[in-house]
Design a protein around this nucleic acid. Structure first.
Lengths: 244, 244
DNA sequence: CGCCTATTTGATCTGATTCAAACAATGTGG
DNA sequence: CCACATTGTTTGAATCAGATCAAATAGGCG
């Protein structure tokens, strides 16, 4: 069953990276599936599963990750409303990583067959998904460049820049502030850092006057400066809308 | 094992991850384009380019990489004959990373339009490419897991395992040895390590009796052990053929 | 042989981890 | 509304994996 809003998160998200026609939009918003609400810190898909449906995020914050034998977690990406973090399960039987919630989330589980059918009927939608997958890969590469070759505070600055733009692209950020639902431990897992070091690096960014925060709310005081420290260049996100 | 040497590298490569029909194979091997030979250590595509053709590797070793403002290089992936490292340029105008040769290479530059046409005529070939892109992403994730969360010798062990299997899948490795055309500096750039540390970690793997090497030739003395140290599980490569 | 590029070794330094404990928020149930 | 538990943030000190610097070998190869 599905509800009907003016614009579903999926349409809004694809809109930010691809020009859709009216017909394509309405087809997308009519995708069938079952809605499920999942508490924070729970797995949606687990490494080695072979799901027959994929999950569209309606609300919440989700991540993809993998755990080392030594029990260390590496987060690969964060996902927001409109994303389908396990779209790849459409073409790859076994999934090679887990997907878990960060915050309580509302997800729409869409049968693979429905997505395939949609792609057959609207080849440009397939193109949009393909494009999204490629952008996903580009984000990975930026991530890897940071983890492999940049210092802690620079990685963090980059992550904050990226999240800000992505959230703004889907209407979840204000002019220069947004809700950041990540703990410092989660940031560390994403960037290959210890919690302690994330904490000290954040303090440094604050001391430099680049950011400020109160509770979950993060304010960007100096976008230019933050971008520079993080060596952030938004091109790789391939967003359609221009950037502040 | 099979002995079809008349096939092109591309067919051989896709064969290793996807079941192609005879008609699809011959269409693939008839892809047009211009062959160019490129010396070692030269760029094929540069970050921010917007190429109108993509390059199929016929011979040689190629990598994708990006460089930090501080001048540090991070290699994202290595590519071997049959790979099309910049296939993504088909759907993403601007390329977000550079592609460069490691060894002297022979490349076939195929116009985007020819690939698009092929995908239209043979949708299953499009599926195969899509699948290849997804596997590429899976390789990235493994890579990132290592760089972010594993120790140096473990990352190296993992890389060696991966290269061995991939090379064997396309017929470029023997039972337990292969030509490894990488310098220690390049391994470092791939794994986020300094040359010196790569050297010492390799010595450690040798001392453990896991590998041996003479010149460019690398021998795997203890596959089990190497896999364990690297926490290597080949599932993510999604190779069709079973593994030793 | 001599040149250039890789590998190896040694010594030193440092960014980041780890361990440990205090502190702040937030939430829970009585 | 308070005591208490829980989870996240912050601080401090000790330690370590890996970086950096510097210089000595060892291979290839024209």
């Amino acid at each position: 069953m599905h509800g009907h809003r003016a614009e579903t998160p999926l349409v809004g998200k694809l809109d930010s990276i691809f020009a859709l026609s009216g017909e394509e939009r309405s087809a997308l918003s009519r995708l069938p599936g079952s809605i499920r609400e999942i508490a924070a810190d729970h797995d949606v898909v687990r490494e080695r599963d072979a799901p027959t449906e994929c999950c569209l995020i309606l609300e919440g914050f989700v991540c993809r990750y993998k755990v080392t034998d030594a029990g260390k977690r590496q987060i690969f990406s964060f996902h927001t409303p409109g994303d389908i973090p396990d779209l790849q399960s459409l073409h790859l039987e076994v999934i090679d990583h887990s997907v878990g919630t960060i915050t309580p989330s509302k997800l729409l589980f869409i049968p693979h067959e429905a997505v395939r059918e949609l792609c057959r009927r609207f080849p440009r939608i397939a193109d949009a998904f393909w494009r999204d997958t490629l952008i996903d890969g580009a984000v990975f590469r930026q991530w890897l460049l940071g983890v492999g070759r940049k210092e802690a505070h620079s990685r963090i600055a980059h992550l904050l820049c990226e999240l800000f733009l992505r959230l703004r692209a889907i209407g979840l950020a204000e002019e220069s502030a947004f809700e950041l639902p990540l703990t410092q431990a989660e940031i560390g897992d994403a960037l290959g850092l210890s919690t302690v070091h994330v904490n000290r690096s954040l303090q440094r960014l604050r001391a430099l006057g680049l950011i400020a925060s109160s509770g979950r709310r993060l304010m960007i005081r100096d976008w230019r400066g933050l971008s520079e420290v993080g060596e952030f260049d938004p091109t790789y996100l391939h967003l359609i809308k221009a950037v502040a």
